[in-house]
């Protein structure tokens, strides 16, 4: 009875993600349905300047976001942990300050600045996304790891945990919600900024949007704008579901022998 209730709840949790994923795939493979549905309003608004294959653009976009967000997570988490423990702590306030300055820089300006500083195209954009996407993860890791109640740490040490055990069983799991919300911010920023990457030659869903905007071709704009909107909502919904599913619980059950 209880199991059923839990299953029902978790089904509900993933419902919107599944729905958005279905919508995303539909947009990729049957965009003609949208075109015909919108045709009464599109007269004279379309000359189809860009017919790039949507699944291919999706692949480019997802790969760009996935690669940069993955590297951001590794970098942000690694740097955050390094700066939160041992001698690295002395640099903590400096790093937090620099991160807060860098985060203020607009993502569009960062993508644009990447061109004169590192160059034009796919890899420079990925590099800019990685650096920019690391910031929220790094900040939240630092803040999350520092928020642990000192009484809890004392209790953990008092129970005989070693330094590493205190870190991996108490401090890190308690910082998970903050870290994941940082990852969520990073993912959303990267998805949005990757769209902009088209303007600097990085490919992805931004390509039809940018060329459509230049030619005032509405259907081409929508070919990029609709799927990328659904993709952003989908990624956000997946991370939110992960948050609710309790990454902390999964971690504890995976790292604790029972």
């Amino acid at each position: 009875m209880r199991l059923k209730a839990v299953a029902g709840l978790s089904g509900c949790r993933w419902f919107s993600s599944v729905l958005l994923a279905g919508l995303f795939i539909l947009l990729l493979y049957r965009f003609d349905l949208i075109e015909s549905a919108l045709s009464p309003w599109l007269r004279g608004r379309s000359n189809l300047v860009n017919r790039a294959s949507l699944p291919q653009l999706a692949l480019q976009h997802i790969f760009m976001v996935g690669l940069s967000s993955g590297l951001s997570l590794v970098l942000g988490l690694g740097a955050g942990i390094a700066v939160s423990s041992g001698r690295g702590r002395q640099l903590r306030s400096l790093i937090l300050d620099l991160v807060s300055v860098a985060e203020t820089l607009p993502s569009a300006a960062v993508i644009a600045l990447a061109v004169p500083l590192i160059g034009y195209g796919y890899w420079p954009t990925v590099l800019a996304l990685v650096l920019y996407g690391t910031l929220p993860i790094l900040r939240n890791t630092l803040i999350g790891l520092d928020q642990t109640d000192p009484a809890l740490l004392e209790a953990a040490v008092g129970m005989g945990m070693k330094t590493l055990q205190v870190f991996f069983r108490v401090r890190l799991p308690l910082a998970f919600p903050a870290i994941i919300s940082g990852f969520r911010t990073s993912l959303i920023i990267n998805t949005s900024a990757a769209t902009l990457g088209a303007a600097v030659g990085a490919g992805g869903f931004g390509v039809p949007i940018v060329s459509g905007l230049r030619a005032m071709d509405t259907i081409t704009i929508l070919r990029g704008a609709l799927p990328v909107t659904v993709l952003a909502l989908l990624l956000d919904s997946v991370v939110v579901s992960l948050q609710q599913a309790g990454v902390r619980r999964l971690w504890i059950s995976a790292t604790t022998r029972t």
Binding site: F205, G212, L222, T229
Partner: peptide, 21 residues
């Protein structure tokens, strides 16, 4: 919240059709 999640460039693109109509 949803508006905040939509990529900026894409939101601009989505606004064009309804606004010109």
């Amino acid at each position: 919240n949803t508006a905040q999640t939509i990529p900026t460039l894409s939101l601009l693109g989505l606004l064009i059709l309804p606004l010109s109509l």
